[in-house]
Computed example of a mutant assay.
Amino acid sequence: MKLIIAIVQDRDANKLMKALIKENFKMTKLASSGGFLKSGNTTLMIGVNEEYVDKVITIIGNTCKTREETVVSYSTTEATGIYMPYLSDSKVEVGGATIFTVDVEKYLKV
């Protein structure tokens, strides 16, 4: 048995969970937050037999696409010391999924 841990953006989470449920995969949903943009993430823990790992990863890849977002940066004006937001020219790639697959030594349901 394998445990797939998938970290996805909140905006992709519901669509992913529906796609997994449609294929009869069960999961546990955990709320989490990202590091780089401090945006909301969802962590899904999905326990599957080894032969289904690739199928689950394919569903995740088909559901959680990457996209570009403009970064909002903050600067301090010298005269007032006030933080002012401004749109920078830099764009970052967000979305997709971070996936970990680990061996499960023992599985119990009590």
Rank of each mutant, 00 (worst) to 15 (best):
K2F: 08
L3S: 03
I5C: 03
I5F: 06
I7S: 11
Q9I: 02
Q9L: 03
D10C: 04
R11Y: 11
R11H: 11
R11A: 06
D12A: 01
N14A: 05
K15Q: 11
L16K: 04
I21C: 12
I21S: 15
K22S: 12
E23A: 14
E23R: 15
E23L: 08
N24R: 14
N24P: 03
N24Q: 14
N24H: 14
M27T: 12
T28A: 04
L30G: 03
G35L: 05
F36C: 00
L37E: 00
L37Q: 02
K38F: 01
K38L: 01
G40N: 15
G40I: 01
L44Q: 08
L44A: 08
M45L: 14
I46V: 13
G47C: 08
G47Q: 10
V48K: 04
V48M: 07
N49Y: 09
E50W: 03
Y52C: 06
V53D: 01
K55R: 14
K55G: 00
K55V: 13
K55N: 10
V56Q: 10
I57W: 01
I57S: 13
I60T: 02
N62D: 12
N62R: 12
C64M: 05
K65Y: 00
R67D: 04
E69T: 06
T70I: 09
V71C: 03
V72K: 12
V72N: 07
Y74E: 02
S75C: 12
T77H: 13
A79K: 15
G81V: 04
M84A: 11
P85L: 06
P85S: 10
P85A: 07
Y86Q: 09
L87R: 15
S88G: 15
S88P: 05
K91V: 12
E93S: 11
V94K: 09
V94H: 00
G95T: 10
G95P: 04
A97T: 07
T98M: 15
I99V: 15
F100N: 06
V102Q: 05
D103Y: 02
E105D: 14
E105L: 09
E105S: 10
E105R: 10
Y107I: 14
K109N: 11
K109E: 14
K109G: 03
